[in-house]
Amino acid sequence: MTKYIVKRLLLMIPTLFGVAVIIFFLMRIVPGDIVELRFAGESAYAQKENLDTERARLGLDKPIGQQFLTWIGGLLRLDFGTSMWTGAPITEEIRLRFALSLQLAIMATIVAILLAIPLGVIAALRQDTWIDYTVRVMSIAGLATPSFWLGIVFILGLLIVFKWLPPMVYTPFWVNPVQNLAQLIWPALAVGYRYSAVATRMTRSAMLEVLREDYIRTARAKGLWEKLILSRHALKNAMLPVLTVIALEFAFLIGGLVVTEQVFNLNGLGMLFVEAVGHRDYTLTQALVMLVAFVFIFVNFLVDLAYAWLDPRIRFR
């Protein structure tokens, strides 16, 4: 087991390095750089000298290979440097945004789990009845509805029916939990519904598969209470693929909610992404991409680990 974990951890390195190479050079292909953008606002023709000093200050005058090595060297020491646009340390820039994105992702996950598992189980138990059909249609509809549009509809509904708008300025949870939840519950519902659709379908099909297993028949044959069969024998075994879907979707939510954040005016990681690319803030964009890629790879790793942990058939292979 330890050998497996070490091997998987080591395998993360080449993948992260590949992501680093791609984002570094991709950003350099994007036309226009931060210095041009900054001086473009000030005067129609900024002195070339000014541009050059600014580039030298940011280290953009050095050969590209050297820039890359400097950056990678910093990454290895977990030093992300400072934002080229604001000059603030990148860890500072990211921290608050990350807290918001993380909270939203967690809330959406809770919504998704609360919807998906009961619905998926009921649909599987009542396969091919109207309940099953309703759940299936609901989940396909969830996959088809853009969550940013659902967000717009929520805001519209609140506005027209209750004449009330959710707060548009972010308050951290520890400052004012009510204010915080009143703002974040709507995007969490909009995103959670879509997210639950994937999980519901997975729960349903996993349950259907498990319910056909011999050990369920055995449990029934020995007269075990149906509730116990479901909770202890069926659901537990059906949860593995559901866990995978939920975890992967969670990894996506940490930087992938750009549009929903826009609709609800939330300053999360997604918005930061768009700003960073817009400003050609190389250091910030690179750090963000590395962060999101790391979360994705790490969650994948955890899922594989959980599989090995929960399923002895995999552990002892």
Partner: peptide, 11 residues
């Protein structure tokens, strides 16, 4: 796969 989709599109 690990690369954020939206960044790819943005780029």
């Amino acid at each position: 796969l690990a690369f954020p989709l939206i960044i790819l599109a943005l780029a």
